[in-house]
Design a protein around this nucleic acid. Sequence first.
DNA 1: CTGAAAGCGCTTACAG
DNA 2: CTGAAAGCGCTTACAG
Lengths: 334, 334
Amino acid sequence: MAITLKDIAKKAGVSESTVSRVLNGIPKASSETRDKILKIAKELGYYPNDVARSLAKQKTHIIGLIVSDIANPYFASVIGGVEEVASLKGYSLIISATGGKEKEELKYIKILKEKKVDGIVFMSGRMPDSCEKALVESEIPTVVVSRKVKSFLPSIHIDNIGESYKAVEYLIKLGHRRIAMISGPCIDKESGYHRLLGYKNALADYDLPFEEELVQEGDFKMDSGRKAMENLLSLKKLPTAVFAASDAMGVGAIKAIKKAGLRVPEDISVIGFDNSIISLACDPELTTIGQPVKDLGRTAMEMLYKIIQGEELERRTIYLPCELIIRGSTKSLG
Amino acid sequence: MAITLKDIAKKAGVSESTVSRVLNGIPKASSETRDKILKIAKELGYYPNDVARSLAKQKTHIIGLIVSDIANPYFASVIGGVEEVASLKGYSLIISATGGKEKEELKYIKILKEKKVDGIVFMSGRMPDSCEKALVESEIPTVVVSRKVKSFLPSIHIDNIGESYKAVEYLIKLGHRRIAMISGPCIDKESGYHRLLGYKNALADYDLPFEEELVQEGDFKMDSGRKAMENLLSLKKLPTAVFAASDAMGVGAIKAIKKAGLRVPEDISVIGFDNSIISLACDPELTTIGQPVKDLGRTAMEMLYKIIQGEELERRTIYLPCELIIRGSTKSLG
DNA sequence: CTGAAAGCGCTTACAG
DNA sequence: CTGAAAGCGCTTACAG
């Protein structure tokens, strides 16, 4: 059985209240009783029961994190950022993986409510209305990562449209005119549809025609990028550059291009999105849009902390800038 | 304010005890009161306060996970496995990142004790005596992942010596006689020293001489593999094959080899360790030893669950087998 | 089948 | 400066 306040109180011949105050550093004890209590606590190897404290204080100092897949390096990095700041502020992190399934998401929101977490970071696959409703109704301070919200819930994003625009614009400025895109699934609003939109916008602004055949849809994974590129390579008129909505698809594209006997970037330039580790592993190394993954997590947790503290958020929707990282997979045309 | 048992009891005109029993499905209530209580609970939108329940039951249904770096894909995958099984068994996961620092490790062990977690999965960088002592003294059921322990603490591993042996043996059977190794830091007993040991053992068993100059120490990251390979390439007599103790270093080695104008695997074969995503991103794709990362996590959690349930563990130390995955970076000699 | 009571281990006004 | 008491929201013998 663990040592409790009562044990210390008994041994010190004082009340539990006094022990509690001393141990919490509330400065209303004579240094005499103080020292005695501290000494006994140490002797007995006392450590507080945080469950009891949470119940009494109505605060758990736990943040709940809902994510679709922990093992996904992107989420893992964001989580790393959340954890870093949470730990700094004295919070622990409960992590739940939903596999992007709405039912699981709702289940975990319920569990987190029961666990009385002080806040929630939500970054599961999509953001179904049901989840958003549950989050709002939970009245638990919540920050949403990378998902558009309809309610007042605060959220943090990257500007998928603008950053994609940046990538394509870079290709255009390199002299490319026939630029293909390997997009994500368009049902994915942010990383799918918005990145495609950025591509379209850039083409439009630079008076380049949008051609259906130059857009192939993948699922963000390497193999889908490979297949998408094979399709593009079967076109009568090849593109001179490809914008992939993820590094993995970009790497897949490079593989397909090389397999077809063409060279990157001499024959076709490829640009990715994410700056994940694989963008450095491939050959040539992939030019890409670097997402501030860790900062997304950090900032999410900082926003959450403010809300928990009752502070006003200056902005309920924050966009973090990405960085164009130029490597060997892109080349000026001519 | 959230709805409590008391609210339901009052509205239903029964005692809290009865409400508690009904809500917990303890079958000693007339279906009449039962239905009434359930109905009211639903109306009021009641959900239990798990903190109070934890205090009363002396169980939190929380598992604490101590890891050095969440963002590391290897750990992220293991965590994914732990989470999967934990969730299945009705446990939540608190995750703490230590950066591999002993001080942080001790701090988190303390926090987890205070949070009264039902069990701990420990997979931080090393396993300092102080940590092991703290874990043992905490009396919290604990499973250690990938770290040798001195105490009775249960642990789960891969056989680093044997699996490395397997990798090197494969190269030998391909006809290679001059095989270099890019090892991890030897202060890292398991992934560092033991993998080197497996290399040495294989050489010895096949009557190949061990040559100091063929061993270069890296830090498991890509850049260190590149540098290590550059050193190897400056040898008068080049190796025909290289065993890297991590995929990242293997990829770095490939880059260095290609940069020097040589080919993989025609001139030099390379084999890695881990089967991480980057082993598929590089060119050629890397032959490697595939670690059962997710299963390590799953099994750790299953062991932990048994301990929590008070069951006997058949084996306190479990080794999970790895798989030799043959890809394009290795080639038969001649 | 149901209720009153004690308990889990803390915190925190309130008195003194 | 310190203690008695109530409270946080549950669970669980024990009686009836």
